[in-house]
Design a binder for these strands. Sequence first.
DNA 1: TCTGGGGTCCTAGGACCC
DNA 2: TCTGGGGTCCTAGGACCC
Length: 408
Amino acid sequence: MRGAATILHADLDAFYASVEVRDRPELRGKPVAVGGGVVLAATYEARRFGVSAPLGGAEARRRCPGLIVVPARFEAYVEASRAVMAIFDDFTPRVEPISIDEAFLEVGGSERLFGPAEDIARTIRERVRAEVGLPISIGVATTKHLAKIASRVAKPDGLVVVPAGEEEGFLDPLPVGMVWGIGPVGEERLARYGIHTIGELRAMPQSSVVEWFGQAWGTDLWERARNDDPRSVERRARAGSVGAQSAGDSTDPDRRHTTLLALADRIGARMRRKHLAGRRVTVRVRLDDMSLLTRARVLPGPIAETTPLFRITAELVDALIHDRAANRGITLVGISVSMLEEAPHLQLVLPLEEEQVTTSGSRSHLRARELDAAVDRARERCGRPAVTRGALLRNTPEERSPTEAMGE
DNA sequence: TCTGGGGTCCTAGGACCC
DNA sequence: TCTGGGGTCCTAGGACCC
């Protein structure tokens, strides 16, 4: 027998859109979408017209003629998110943020102070509404997976409690797509076996599910369908990778290199700020038919400097395009760095290091680090847009490409 | 209906080692 | 000379999540 229902999954409703409505009361009750080219979030009034993320802006307006489209204000969302997470912290130290707008809370140790989990959930909802001005839905259950499903069922602006012992009755009639990890492809595959509800999936032998979905994934799904989910609420682990991508036409090599340099610069700065460096560099290319290609390289040591990051990604992307996509249109390039390690000294240049770097012959690596540190410092003082790498400003064909400009 | 940007996890196959 | 089984690392790709 599992314990009492003490796990909360709290999920802000239509988060970005709700922040906009909060700050502009004239939008209340109207169909609102946040974004521009693509919808990032939509109010429930807009969703009734089939407008939701990620839908193209033009199509969204077609579906919903009165749609009000507002640009995203990420600083406001980060601010609101912090305020909400701070409220969670008032009730338990065991808060596991999942993304900007949702978190798990383990409140088993807090009931003596604040009452039963259901009361805690109710109080949190009231406080988020009163102090941050946003609607939030909460699911309460005995496991994380079930709490997450419960919060989805609770939406919008609701509370659903699944008491211990009532899990199967709650789960069984729900569609399999509600299981975390079953998306459109998995749903379609299960439909071919006549399985549409979680109850039907639970009735299958584990061996069949493993056969369909592979060892690890099949076992997970089967356990989730049975609500046999051993994961506990943990404080968030550090990110495993840092990446950035840019959609748009990157067919032209010069333009592509400019984009890659901007991406390398962005994630390099992000890693340095967090004192991280990574050993694996992965690039991603999307072709004009939306298919994706990737290439990865593991380096002998971790890096976080913009210049080598740019050089490696440009090499990988160019080779990938040469091998697999010559004469194709390129509609997106992305890079990411993983196998991250702590690198607390990243912005310092120690005498010993300098000597090693010099004798190993890669002085440019050292200069790159000094340049990054200078750029990062300037940005801290003046704000990000104040400092831009020269190569990012040169875009006309007669000028040198960033590859050349970086001193290849 | 032709689609943004940030991530996670899993699989399969090859290279390599013992 | 030919062979097995196990383990690890790496690469490419796919599905999924917010």
